[in-house]
């Protein structure tokens, strides 16, 4: 098949465009394709959003973590010394690119940076449930306090002021223990 613009060379570029019903169709040799592209008539550098796997993914983590991924940061910003996790050496940018932290320490080093994304995933940032043995005293007390505060709110709502006062004292005593 010959190029349908110059009619001389073999056509190697087959271009179909349909934007909102406005159709263009060409069969072109490489010279004519280059000329038409330079004139802005056709666009050969078009990439479908579905083909851009990598940028889509980092975009996803960007929205997950609320942190711009590497390509989105300007060169100037990248020269600034970034905070690194003391145990595994990752930066928050590397974490957001991978979507996973490098070690347990990362959750402490980047607590503020990670909080928004954790809230987005779970809808909560307050653990409820089991804890390791070495956290027994701390967690049991915290759970007890939480329970007392909930009951205090309830008592106030029901206008049971005597019960509320007792609960308030119990909370005071428990917090004073520390």
């Amino acid at each position: 098949m010959l190029c349908n613009r110059c009619g001389k060379n073999e056509a190697v570029v087959f271009y179909n465009e349909n934007i909102n019903g406005y159709k263009k169709s060409y069969s072109l040799c490489s010279d004519c394709a280059r000329e038409l592209e330079a004139a802005g008539e056709i666009n050969l550098n078009f990439t479908s959003p579905f083909e851009e796997g990598e940028s889509l993914l980092s975009g996803l983590f960007e929205s997950m973590f609320g942190i711009p991924s590497a390509p989105a940061l300007s060169g100037a910003k990248r020269t600034v010394k970034e905070k690194r996790c003391p145990l595994c050496g990752l930066t928050i940018r590397e974490i957001s690119e991978e979507g996973k932290v490098g070690c347990a320490e990362c959750y402490r080093s980047f607590a503020d940076e990670l909080r928004p994304s954790i809230t987005r995933i779970h809808g909560s940032v307050h653990h409820k449930g089991r804890f390791p043995l070495r956290f027994k005293n701390k967690c049991e007390k915290e759970n007890r306090l939480e329970d007392l505060r909930r009951r205090l709110k309830e008592a106030i709502k029901n206008e049971e002021f005597e019960r509320a006062a007792a609960l308030r004292d119990e909370i005071r005593n428990l917090t004073a223990e520390a």
Partner: peptide
Amino acid sequence: LDSSLNLAFNEKLGYLTHCPTNLGTGM
């Protein structure tokens, strides 16, 4: 395992996991 290992944990986030989707109970 808990009786002899220091399992990674923090009171706010629960058991600390590689992927944040498993934080908390890790269950």
